[in-house]
């Protein structure tokens, strides 16, 4: 690696200093950590409960799976409507903090 020309120490130091000076998130991160408590295993279902409803119909044992006609329903998805218009989305902004679905 040493034979390669690496970025200079001063450029790195400047970048790190700039990154940290822009770090307004410091305090908020700390306070957010202090204010929350963790609750294990409630947000995402492990699905240990019995699927009693459909379990009585034997829908899952059908030998005739969704066939031909069902594959056509791909087009029901919204994906094919995506066009070439519209700009790219923001860069370093958090895109989402979505909740467990």
């Amino acid at each position: 690696m040493s034979q390669k020309t690496l970025i200079g120490a001063s450029a790195l130091a400047g970048a790190v200093a700039m990154a940290i000076s822009g770090a307004t998130f410091l305090a908020s991160t700390d306070s957010a950590t202090a204010a929350t408590e963790k609750c294990y295993g409630v947000a995402m279902a492990g699905k240990n409960d019995c699927a009693a409803g459909p379990g009585t119909t034997c829908a899952g044992t059908s030998k005739v799976d969704f066939q031909g006609n069902a594959w056509k329903s791909v087009e029901a998805g919204t994906c094919t409507t995506m066009s070439l218009e519209g700009g790219r989305m923001g860069s370093l902004e958090p895109l989402d903090r979505d909740l467990p679905a």
Binding site: K47, A51, A52, P54, G55, T56, C58, A59, G60, T61
Partner: peptide
């Protein structure tokens, strides 16, 4: 019925 429950789950 059991197989169905497993599959659906």
């Amino acid at each position: 019925v059991y197989r169905n429950t497993v599959t659906v789950t």
